[in-house]
């Protein structure tokens, strides 16, 4: 699986700077994300190993659970991208978000391996309710549902990770999932941030 983040080609004119500046910022931002993520994984792996097998084992289960959900999210976005229902710029958005999930999955898999665990693999086949996806809005709602669930899943993971660096890394991913959820809601014409607290 590639660790590279897909090149975002968002068409949010209001959010864009001049093309040159955008290219440079985008490159720096993406490089920073990958490097810091990898650094977190490696450092956290060493710390957790030093704390003992039992602790690492518990964290491996939590991280593998998150990895399984990330792999499913990657597959879900692939279904959305190939559905023919998404039009630009929404299609670009979906591909960008899928790239984020790939980066999350790579980081989680590396960390699970570093902790001595066996990273879960993507399923050969995922069941998605494709018969209910008839329009772009249907796909967006489905993706938003998954992203909101992901926020809750990471909220449920952060407090039970024994290693604080791993908890920090999970919280970093949580923030990304929350942004996905908000942007998808916005694309649907819904209030992007409907609540002050997530659960």
């Amino acid at each position: 699986m590639s660790s590279r983040i897909q090149t975002p080609d968002t068409s949010f004119a209001l959010l864009h700077d001049a093309p040159e500046l955008e290219t440079r910022r985008s490159f720096l931002g993406k490089s920073g994300l990958v490097l810091s993520g990898a650094a977190i994984a490696l450092l956290a792996g060493r710390d957790a190993l030093a704390k003992g097998k039992k602790t690492a084992g518990s964290d491996v289960n939590v991280l593998n659970s998150a990895l399984g959900a990330e792999l499913e999210a990657i597959a879900a976005y692939q279904v959305g991208a190939e559905s023919g229902l998404l039009q630009k710029p929404v299609l670009d958005l979906a591909v960008t978000f899928q790239g984020h999930h790939k980066a999350h999955a790579d980081l989680l898999a590396q960390t699970v391996a570093k902790l001595g665990g066996k990273p879960v693999s993507a399923k050969e086949k995922y069941d998605f309710p494709v018969d209910t996806l008839k329009t772009q809005a249907d796909v967006l709602r489905f993706a938003a549902m998954l992203e909101k669930g992901a926020v809750s899943a990471y909220l449920g993971a952060v407090p039970i990770l024994d290693n604080r660096d791993l908890a920090k890394a999970a919280a970093s991913i949580l923030g990304d999932e929350a942004m996905h959820w908000a942007i998808l809601r916005n694309a649907l014409g819904e209030a992007p941030v409907p609540v002050a607290f997530m659960s």
């Binding site: 959900a69 999210a73 549902m145 909101k148 809750s152």
Partner: peptide, 15 residues
């Protein structure tokens, strides 16, 4: 139940 949507669905197996 919306909190479960990262991994669960009513009618089909997921994570």
């Amino acid at each position: 139940y919306a909190r479960c949507f990262a991994c669960h669905a009513l009618t089909y197996n997921r994570t």
